[in-house]
Structure formats: C-alpha cells, structure tokens
Design a protein around this nucleic acid. Structure first.
Length: 678
DNA sequence: GAGCACTGC
C-alpha cells in the first residue's frame, strides 16, 4: 500500500472577524462544562464574551432584533440569557432560548442553572418533548425549536415570552425556519403592547440573510475560543475518496505522536464498517515502530454503549481513529481531536416535489459543512484538517447547505401554518421560500386526507384538519388515528403509529443474522410489517418490558421505551379530543383497513411480471429487504415511505385489499388509476 | 433479488 498523498501546506485558518477583540492565552483555557476547581463566577468572567458584557447589554437593551454571530466557545448561549436577566431586560416575561437538539437544551439549562446557583427547574428550566422542567418561577427557559413551535399553536403571539433567542440558527432546521416566520409575525403584532425582543444566534454564516429578514437588524460579532487550524488541500482531484482517506489516516499515523486522535468524515454505516475493517487489518501489519491503533465507528444507528466508545481515551501509545458520519459535525462533540480528515462527501436526503420522492444519495458537502468539520479539530488545541479535494474544487462547493425546508415534504409544516391561521400559506414570509410546487403538493396531500378545503379562493382547515394538527405526527398518521374509532381499533393504531415514529425497535447486528432470524420468526405476521411490529409490542408488554427479553429477541429496549412514551402522549391527545379508545383485539383486518384510509396515497400493485408499481405515480417500486414481504408477493400493499437508494424501495409494508383503497378515496382512485380494475 | 445521512414534535 503506497502511503503518500500530495498534501501541501495551505493557509492558516482563523474563522470569523471579531468585533470585540480579546487576547488569547491558551493556558487560560477553561472547560465549557463539567467539573472544575475554578469557581463558577471566575469561569464566567474568563469567557471571551465577558469583556463585551456591558457593551452587549447596552446594545441588546436598545435593539428589538439582533443578529449575534459568535464563534464556538464564545459563551454566547450560556451567558446572553443571564446577562439579559441580570440587567433586568425582559423580566416581564420569560426568556426562551431554542436549540435544535434535546440534549443541548437539557445540558445548557443544567449548566446555566448551576451558574445561577439555583435548582434546575426554578429560575432556569427547560422544556423538551416528554419533559417539562420549569415552574412558575422560571425566567430563563431552554427548549427545542420544535417545542416552541408546538407552543405557538396554542398562542401564536408567544405572549409568555419577552425575549426569544433562536440559537444555532445557521443549522436551518425545519423548525427553526418556520419559527423565523412565526416570531417575525408575533413581533410585528406585539410591537405596541408587549414588545417581543428577538435575538438570532448563529455561527459565521447567513449573516446578511438573517439581518435582511429582520429589517436590516444590526449584526454583533463575538470572538470565540477556537484554536488555529491548518488546512491542507490535495494537489489533485481524488477519484476515490475512500482510498484517499485510508492513505491519509496511515500517513498521519506513521508521522504524528500517538496521542493525536484522528476524526474521519465518511457517509454511512456500511462504508464506515468496511473502512474500520481495512484500517484494523493494515494496522496489524505495520512495523513495531508504529503506534497501536484503535478504530472506533460512529453513526446514529449504533447502540448507545458503542457510541460512547468515542469518548474513551485510548491507551498510552495507542491512537484513536474515529470513523464517523456527519453525526460528529454537530450532534456529538469529541474532545481531543487533533486531525480531521474530510472526504467532502455526505449522504443526505433530497426531495423532488414533482415525484414526491425522497432520494438518499451521497453528495458533495457545502462550504459551511466543510468549515464545521474543520472546526472539530481545534476545540482544545491547534489542529490540522486534511481536505481530500483540491482548493479549486472547494471553491465550487455550494456556500450553504440547502435548508431542510427546501428539501422535504411539507405536509406537516403546511398543516401547522394553517393551524396557526396563516391566511395564505403560499405567501407566508419564509426566510427561504420552499418552491411553490412543493407547497402545492403539500396542500394537495392535505386535501386528499380531508384536512383542508377551498373557500373563496382560500385554503382553510377543516374540523378534521384542526384535530390532525394537534398530533405531533405526519398528517397521514394523524388521519389514521382519527379514523380509528370507526374501525374500533384505536388502541392498535396508536401502538402502530408510535412504533413507526421511532427509528426502529428491531436490532439487527450483521454478524448474528441467523440468530436474529430465528428469534424474530415467532412474531412475523403474514399481513406485513405493521402487524409484525404490533405483535412484537404486545409480546414486549406481556413480559412487562423486560430487558433480558429484549436482548434475547433483538429488540432495542431504548427505542421500545420511547415508543411507550410516544404512545401515551398520543393517547392523551386522543382523550382530549374526546375519542373513545377501543381495541379490536384479534381482528387485524380492521386495523389494516384503518391504515389503508390514512396511507392510501402510498399504495402499490403487483404487476404480472412480478414487479410493483406505485399507484400514485405509476413508477416502479420494490420491496425493501428489511420487510417481512421481501420473499413474497402480495397483490396490494401500502407502505410508510419510499426511499430511493439503489432502487426505489417501499419501507414498512402492510397487506391491503384493493377495495379498501377505493373506499378510502374513491375520487382519487377514479382520477389517478385507470389501471386498477374494481 | 439484497439495505437504512441526521434531527425533532
């Protein structure tokens, strides 16, 4: 194996252009969280942001909308809410700080609460799904962006809040993007009565967009505590990024001290596991002069305990090499990374509103993502980033990742906007507009589900649509739940919808395939994946959620626990809506009939040649290998979703009668599907 | 005939 790659030294990278300068003293570096012998008040004063405190408070007092750009480690997220509170700004209400992720909301609340020397849930609290740690005293509230959006459904002016801080706005999550519009609207309508202060916090991106959106709001810059990172580009275009990554890993491995860990960004589970095997193989055959190597894979579907291995410090004389998906870009921060190897690739979903198809494909990252990856090398000390592409290639990357709202199905978002009584969803003030086609496709889908109707050229919610909006679910699943009383199977549908709301309750370790197969056989239903999941859930309840049972049956107990929580939340909503909850017991026909009424748009028909055609788009589709139907050929099926990878796969299938589909949406099937004979 | 980036309500 040739271990050389043309990696010329490139420019030094120092992100951002700070407005509030600060001398850097590396020796004074303090931990962001965790145990420290330094008193907390002292720690607060050593944060880069502290020197700008007075200026900041004065500016924030005057301004109604502010864009705050802060580098990693500036302390903006923990300090700004406290500064506001200490200065008496917004004391008439609550200061809300949104986060894209639950763990961030929870740990930030815990940290700030500790800094304020108060009990979590009193002055400082948090609200995430299933957990509300706040009280009447709470003045500083961390929450997920989705949670604030859900609260807005009940109070679209967000009257409890005096300040809303949208943190990590550059990530442009679906929820943050919708919140932009909701908050701007609330701010406008509240300006004479109870003004709403808005602070948008972001990394060094999208500044102009944010500022323009809030009527040219001023932009304040904060310096952080990022260390300098050297960047290397390849001299030539790499045709095989995996090979290039492998070479880079071992080049570093042979040259750098063994305590310097390496983080490699790859695209998916399979690729990572294959690369891990190759790395371990090569490492075994290196000369004794070379350090040892421990290879750690990291991706979301990995069980929790195995994910935790990235935090284990490697033994002395041993180098840790982490092979990760983009989960290490934002969600998991690994300390001690000296080298980042960036392949420049990512696996991501793209959405085509014409076909309604989501395509999962390996593609180029954006510049913003490249910087994010690079930044992972300089968190505690200076670092090095090897970019496995040329500088010319980098210059051609898109500058920003396309916001989620422009690459997903908008049915839920549009339903929420309608529930927020947005008069004309096509004209909603999105910070980045989705295409009119995808908005129209969403309205059409809601129309088919009976959630909306046209009145005087306006799209408005029906009574059913209003109820649908109260569930934290995709509209098709809310619809199935709301129809379930007609089929006397609400308990079963609640269970199934909850099971479909989590990643997967099935654990499939690749090297124990035969065991998995035989353990699972007893649950398999000839009626499809939904019914199979239902029987697994019933068995799980019968053994009182026993963990050993889960292990023996290759059931992910953590996800199963989550299913239980989701189910009880959905059940509560049903009860609030006054629904009667019945069980169909052994009658699974009714359950499938009910599912057909929610998922009729996702139906496929067996063709004479043994292939399947989607009834909606008439495109060829295939049964996903994870389905219990993989080796059989039912005539008509409904599926949860289509996933385009190597083929267009249907995931999670349920056997249905053609007749049920027609009953569910007679008009739709008459219009769309002449192919199907009644 | 053979496979699943990442969040969140």
């Amino acid at each position: 194996m040739p271990l050389e790659l043309d990696l010329p030294p490139a420019k030094k990278f120092k992100p951002g252009s700070p407005l509030f300068a600060l001398n850097k003293k590396p020796g004074m570096l303090l931990p962001r969280t965790g145990i420290s012998s330094v008193p907390i008040e002292v720690q607060r004063k050593h944060l880069p942001i502290y020197q700008a405190r007075t200026q900041l408070i004065n500016r924030l007092r005057q301004l109604q909308s502010t864009i705050l750009i802060g580098e990693t480690g500036s302390g903006k997220t923990t300090q700004i809410p406290q500064y506001l509170y200490e200065a008496g700004i917004g004391r008439q209400g609550i200061v809300a700080i949104t986060q894209p992720r639950r763990v961030a909301a929870i740990s930030l609340a815990a940290r700030v609460s500790e800094e304020k020397k108060s009990e979590l849930g009193k002055l400082v609290g948090y609200t995430v799904r299933f957990e509300d740690v706040t009280s009447a005293e709470t003045k500083v509230k961390f929450m997920t962006d989705g949670m604030l959006l859900r609260e807005a459904l009940g109070d679209r002016l967000l009257q409890r809040y005096s300040v809303v801080i949208l943190d990590e706005a550059h990530e442009r999550t679906l929820h943050t993007d919708v919140l932009f519009g909701v908050i701007k609207n609330a701010q406008e309508r509240r300006k004479d009565k109870f003004p709403l202060k808005v602070i948008i916090m972001s990394a060094t991106m999208d500044v102009d967009l944010f500022s323009q959106y809030f009527n040219n709001a001023p932009v304040l810059y904060l310096e952080g505590r990022q260390h300098s990172i050297q960047i290397f580009y390849t001299k030539q275009t790499q045709s095989d990024y995996l090979q290039a990554a492998l070479i880079s890993v071992f080049q570093i491995h042979q040259e750098a001290p063994s305590s310097h860990d390496i983080l490699v960004f790859l695209t998916g589970q399979e690729e990572i596991e294959a690369m891990a095997r190759t790395c371990r193989d090569i490492a075994k055959h290196l000369p004794d002069s070379c350090p040892q190597m421990t290879v750690v894979p990291l991706y979301a579907s990995l069980p929790y305990m195995q994910q935790m291995k990235v935090f284990h410090v490697a033994a002395k004389g041993c180098r840790k090499v982490i092979l990760s998906t983009n989960i290490a870009e934002t969600s998991i921060t690994i300390p001690g990374i000296k080298f980042v190897i960036d392949t420049g690739m990512v696996k991501a979903k793209r959405y085509n509103p014409d076909s309604g198809l989501e395509v999962l494909a390996v593609q180029r990252i954006s510049k913003a993502q490249a910087w994010q990856r690079t930044g992972r090398a300089g968190r505690e000390d200076s670092g090095v980033c090897y970019r496995l592409y040329t500088e010319e290639e980098f210059e051609k990357f898109n500058s920003m990742t396309v916001p989620e709202i422009q690459r997903c199905n908008l049915a839920s978002v549009i339903l929420q906007l309608l529930a927020l009584r947005v008069p004309n969803v096509l004209a909603f003030d999105f910070i980045s507009k989705p295409s009119p086609d995808s908005i129209r496709a969403a309205i059409e889908q809601l129309d088919l589900l009976g959630a909306v109707e046209q009145k005087d050229n306006q799209v408005i919610l029906t009574a059913l649509g209003k109820k649908m909006a109260s569930f934290p679910l995709e509209p098709k699943f809310s619809k199935a739940i709301l129809l379930s009383p007609e089929f006397h199977c609400t308990e079963e549908v609640l269970t199934i919808v909850s099971l479909l709301s989590v990643d997967s309750v099935l654990y499939n370790p690749p090297n124990r395939r035969d065991e998995v197969h035989s353990a699972r056989r007893k649950f398999i239903s000839s009626e499809g994946d939904h019914m199979t999941l239902l029987s697994i859930y019933r068995a799980f309840k019968n053994v009182n959620a026993n963990k050993d049972w889960c292990r023996e049956n290759f059931v992910n107990s953590r996800n199963m626990a989550l299913v239980t929580e989701i189910r009880s939340q959905l059940r509560d909503i049903c009860l609030k809506l006054g629904m009667t909850l019945e069980s169909s017991r052994m009658d699974t026909g009714n359950v499938r009939r009910c599912l057909a009424h929610g998922l009729f748009m996702n139906a496929a028909e067996l063709q004479p040649d043994g292939s399947y055609l989607a009834l909606d788009s008439h495109q060829p589709v295939a049964i996903h290998p994870s389905s219990v139907f993989f080796n059989s050929k039912p005539s008509y099926v409904i599926y949860n979703e289509l996933l385009h990878t190597s083929k267009c796969y249907m995931r999670d299938l349920c056997l249905v009668d053609a007749e049920w589909l027609h009953q569910a949406a007679p008009e739709y099937f008459r219009r769309k599907l002449r192919v199907v004979k009644s």
